[in-house]
Design a protein around this nucleic acid. Structure first.
Length: 169
DNA sequence: GCCAACGTTGGC
DNA sequence: GCCAACGTTGGC
């Protein structure tokens, strides 16, 4: 299957880029997701090697701050079986899990954060799930074209111009 | 099956 | 802190 791209939201007050970077092997289990649409992506769609935009929500400013990669297929989220976890799921049985997780590994910290408002200004990102009104999906697909644009914006030096990425002399 | 009420997300 | 939008729950 072709490589796919994703965006995951994280609240840096809980677990952000700093925590991801400090994780063993810069890898963490992306668990605690309790939304069926996001669950389906975790369980059915995300594959090792897929690219992940790591987004800080509820932050000032909200922004994509890094890339990561999926390092394994989805598997049952163990926190659903833990009675003491806020993610505990009474309906789940070990052989009938409800929620899923994937492991992701930090790839590269962007040269600079790509902010939400900046993405809104980019014509090529107009269809991005993140930018849709009322979008709350915490694990969402990103097209290859959207990925390229965000990466290009994030690798540019600050103040290198507005609008389209262009060659410099 | 409908829909009001509720809890949560997340930008501002 | 506010509030719009969303997803889920539960009464009927």
């Amino acid at each position: 299957m072709a490589k796919r791209y994703w965006l995951v939201k994280s609240d840096p007050a809980t677990f952000g880029l700093a925590e991801l970077a400090a994780s063993p092997e810069r890898t963490t289990r992306w668990d605690g997701v309790r939304n069926y649409q996001a669950r389906n992506h975790l369980r059915d769609d995300m594959q090792p090697g897929d690219g992940v935009l790591f987004y800080h929500s509820q932050s000032d400013p909200p922004a994509v701050v890094a890339t990561a990669k999926v390092v394994g297929a989805g598997y049952p989220d163990p926190t659903q079986f833990d009675r003491k976890s806020p993610g505990h799921e009474p309906r789940a049985k070990p052989d009938q899990p409800v929620w899923y997780a994937v492991d992701i590994q930090l790839d590269e910290v962007l040269g600079r954060p790509v902010t939400l408002s900046e993405m809104r200004d980019e014509a090529g990102l107009r269809q991005m799930v993140l930018l849709r009104k009322g979008s709350r999906l915490s694990v969402q697909p990103v097209s290859a074209a959207e990925w390229r644009i965000v990466i290009a914006l994030g690798s540019r030096r600050p103040g290198a111009g507005k609008g389209k990425v262009r060659a410099e002399s």
